[in-house]
Simulated scan of single mutants.
Amino acid sequence: MIPPVPSRHRNAVATRQAILASARRHFARENYENVGLREIAGDAGVDPALVSRYFGSKEALFRETLRDDDKDIMDGATRDNLAAHFAQLFLDKGDVPQDERDIHIERILTLLHSIGSPKAGQIIRETIDADILGPVAREIGGADADMRAAMAFAVLMGMGIMHNTLAVDPSTCSDAESARFEKRLTRIFAAALDPHEDG
């Protein structure tokens, strides 16, 4: 039996997603200026002209990799579980699916690689404010919410460095070690988000 021919719309969606996935991988490994649209297109298996057709420009594609509406870093997070939610982004357990954890980590690595870029830096700052700092601050509320959100984000960035540069992977630890890692990391996030001042 001859399989049905995919619709043009379905092909367009699949092509767009393939380009986006390829761009995420490249921007997570290289500085913004070192990533070319031909490389992204080649890894996605599409003609380079399609990158411009679907995204318009390299800047627009970069922005889209950071602001993927399907993978909200706050999905499933509440004020009460936010510290544990952030900790689980780096663990192979909990309620966050592995593909979402991978995308969150790629986004953090992208920020690390390109924050100093003149072109990408402004996009990154706007994205951090709109998609991370703002939502976290609104969720936690209370005194110094913006400061506490920024401190939690600093921990997220530090974990991204540890995951990539130091090649520390808690999923390869024993169950006991992994549990201790999760407990300590949750406490760190909780301290950053705590509205009460010491002393």
Rank of each mutant, 00 (worst) to 15 (best):
M147E: 09
D146F: 06
R138E: 07
A14G: 13
R180C: 10
I108M: 04
D146A: 09
E64R: 11
K58V: 03
L193F: 05
D144E: 07
E33M: 15
T172L: 04
A83Y: 04
P3F: 12
D99S: 14
I40V: 11
M162E: 05
V51P: 01
T15R: 09
E177H: 10
S7R: 15
D75P: 05
A18Y: 02
V5Y: 14
A23C: 03
R24M: 01
I19D: 01
A23H: 02
D80G: 04
V155R: 03
F189R: 06
L156E: 02
L111W: 07
D80T: 10
A152K: 05
L112A: 12
I103H: 07
H9F: 10
Q122I: 11
R24V: 02
D169V: 11
L133C: 08
A18R: 04
D80S: 07
M159F: 11
D194S: 03
R101P: 08
V13W: 06
Q17H: 12
Y32F: 13
G116C: 14
N34S: 13
R138M: 04
M157L: 13
V96R: 05
A152P: 02
R53A: 10
K93A: 15
R138T: 07
H104D: 08
K71I: 15
R138V: 09
G36H: 05
T110F: 03
R16I: 11
R53G: 07
A60T: 14
L37W: 08
H113Q: 12
G158C: 02
F27I: 03
L91Y: 03
P48Y: 04
R101I: 15
D43M: 10
Q17P: 08
P6N: 10
H26T: 15
N164M: 11
S7A: 13
G116P: 12
N164W: 06
R25G: 07
G42H: 02
I128T: 14
I40F: 10
Y54F: 11
P4M: 11
